[in-house]
């Protein structure tokens, strides 16, 4: 996040432009939703392959999706989350982007 602070504008009165900071400090999330089609071993394998997660973590997230209906699988800036969601749609998983405070 160091680049975030560096890029924050310093106003002439010396105060920080907090609009910029807010935008960066509220991360976006990639959420994967349960659906009746996708197979449990496939979902876990996608999480391992795409996010490079160890098996235990991939299985934990997959079970969250299955049992709770959804799981947050990534957080960060909006562009990165859109890349993840696009990739998940490519795999046929139901995924969406949301703000962390939504």
């Amino acid at each position: 996040m160091s680049s975030t602070l560096e890029s924050a504008d310093t106003r002439t009165d010396g105060s920080l432009d907090t609009r910029g900071l807010e935008q960066f400090s509220t991360p976006w999330l990639t959420v994967v939703w349960n659906d009746p089609v996708n197979l449990m071993n496939y979902v876990s394998f996608v999480f391992r392959s795409y996010f490079g997660l160890p098996r235990e973590e991939a299985d934990r997230l997959m079970l969250l999706v299955h049992n709770e209906g959804r799981a947050v699988v990534a957080s960060g800036n909006r562009e990165a989350m859109e890349r993840h969601v696009s990739a998940m749609h490519g795999y046929g998983l139901r995924a969406s982007i949301t703000r962390a405070d939504a």
């Binding site: 859109e82 696009s86 749609h89 046929g92 139901r94 995924a95 969406s96 982007i97």
Partner: peptide, 18 residues
């Protein structure tokens, strides 16, 4: 809707942009 699900569940405009 299943092959290309909405990227933003509560924001149709952002989904359309995506």
């Amino acid at each position: 809707d299943r092959l290309f699900p909405p990227a933003y569940r509560d924001d149709a405009a952002a989904s359309a942009e995506f």
